[in-house]
Simulated scan of single mutants.
Amino acid sequence: MANKSGVENLIFSKGEKITSHNFTGNVWLNNLVQADSINQNAVGSVTFEPGARTKWHSHPSGQIILALDGVGYYQEKGSPKVVVKKGEVIKCPADIPHWHGASVDAKFIQVVITGREKGETIWLEPVSEEDYVK
């Protein structure tokens, strides 16, 4: 959300633009905590522009999504898409393919907490336009 001077009031800085093929659209990542041998959770703030999203993917140790601003989508394989709004929390079960990102007409800012003790994210196929808009 921008203040009167047009500057965004962000909890965390936007970070670096992601150039990975695992995302569609414009997405920024601020790595807040890197997983290590003492604490195997990675924490990042992710900003999705309207229409931006991840590919389908899964996490061997699960993930938690904290919605900070905007309107997002979350969907698990075989389940309906869920609209996610500021202040809501999503718990992604381990090894369940899912995707998340911004809604069609609003940005979405989230903090993700991802367990790394059983391995890295497993990236799958892109989210089809049909899945994204339905």
Rank of each mutant, 00 (worst) to 15 (best):
A2H: 15
A2T: 13
N3G: 10
N3C: 02
S5A: 15
S5H: 11
G6C: 14
N9W: 09
N9M: 15
L10S: 07
K14S: 10
G15H: 03
E16N: 11
E16G: 02
I18C: 07
T19V: 12
T19K: 08
N22K: 10
F23R: 02
T24D: 11
V27A: 03
W28M: 03
W28F: 12
L29I: 10
L29C: 08
N30K: 06
N30V: 04
N31P: 10
N31H: 14
L32H: 00
V33G: 12
D36N: 10
S37K: 14
S37E: 14
I38A: 10
N39T: 02
Q40M: 10
Q40I: 09
A42S: 14
A42F: 03
A42D: 12
G44Y: 04
G44Q: 09
V46Y: 05
V46K: 00
F48G: 00
E49G: 09
P50C: 11
G51Q: 07
A52H: 01
R53T: 02
K55H: 13
K55Y: 14
W56N: 00
W56K: 05
H57M: 02
S58N: 10
H59S: 08
H59P: 02
H59N: 02
S61G: 06
I64L: 13
I64V: 15
I65E: 06
L66I: 09
L66G: 03
A67L: 11
L68Q: 10
D69Q: 14
V71T: 13
G72M: 04
Y73K: 15
Y74V: 05
E76T: 00
E76I: 04
K77Y: 04
K77S: 07
G78L: 01
P80G: 06
P80W: 14
K81L: 13
V82Y: 05
V84G: 12
G87K: 06
G87H: 08
E88R: 14
E88P: 12
V89R: 13
K91H: 09
K91I: 11
K91Q: 15
C92S: 15
C92Y: 01
A94N: 04
A94M: 03
A94D: 02
D95C: 13
H98E: 02
W99M: 01
H100F: 02
A102S: 08
S103A: 04
S103D: 04
V104K: 09
D105Q: 15
D105I: 12
D105C: 04
K107W: 07
K107T: 06
F108C: 05
F108W: 11
I109T: 09
Q110N: 08
Q110T: 14
Q110Y: 14
V111S: 06
V112S: 08
I113V: 11
I113G: 03
T114V: 11
G115P: 00
G115Q: 03
R116Q: 12
R116M: 14
R116L: 12
K118T: 13
K118D: 11
K118V: 01
G119W: 11
E120F: 06
I122N: 06
W123Y: 04
L124F: 04
E125L: 05
P126V: 05
E130A: 14
D131E: 15
